[in-house]
Design a protein around this nucleic acid. Structure first.
Lengths: 71, 71
DNA sequence: AAATTTTGTAAAATATACTTGACATTTTGT
DNA sequence: ACAAAATGTCAAGTATATTTTACAAAATTT
């Protein structure tokens, strides 16, 4: 799956580690890592929380990631 | 949870039933119903597929639904 | 008003998002 | 080069998204 480089960049722009972002969003560091690496398909509420923490919108971070609902 | 009226409206604008949208997006009718009624927290790939089928973006249909990752 | 389509909903099963704990590799700072 | 911090990843467990089957209520059509 495709890596989410926009998310990685937005996090870097705020100088946050994966672990710090994870705490803000109340998930584990592994979950943040997996989302950035495109290792799976997060829920929209998690995406929204990530967007809020990074000061971005859904379109800015998650639109055009391909779609194609994986079964 | 909050209903997704924007999604319902976008679907109505294309004159699609929940079942027709479900087939386009390859989920069940019940899943579409649950998403519209805010009964749960869909994955982002499903949201993206719904957006594509309805000709909208994530921000148009799913942004501002509150966030607050439910555990 | 009867028939048909659409929608709400519920219980049980399955698939998968997410956690926990742990270890290896990479990157950054000194 | 060394230490410390940050990241990748894996296996086993838990939580929840999604399916399947099914039935009832509401809306639409004839």
């Amino acid at each position: 799956m495709a890596k989410n480089l926009r998310m990685k960049a937005a996090r870097a722009a705020l100088d946050l580690s994966q672990d710090e972002l994870a705490k803000k969003v109340k998930v584990t560091r592994q979950t943040i890592s997996a989302v950035e690496n495109g290792d799976y398909n997060p829920t929209i509420n998690l995406c929204i929380d990530i967007c809020i923490a990074l000061g971005k919108t859904l379109d800015e971070l998650f639109w055009n990631d391909g779609g194609g609902n994986k079964k």
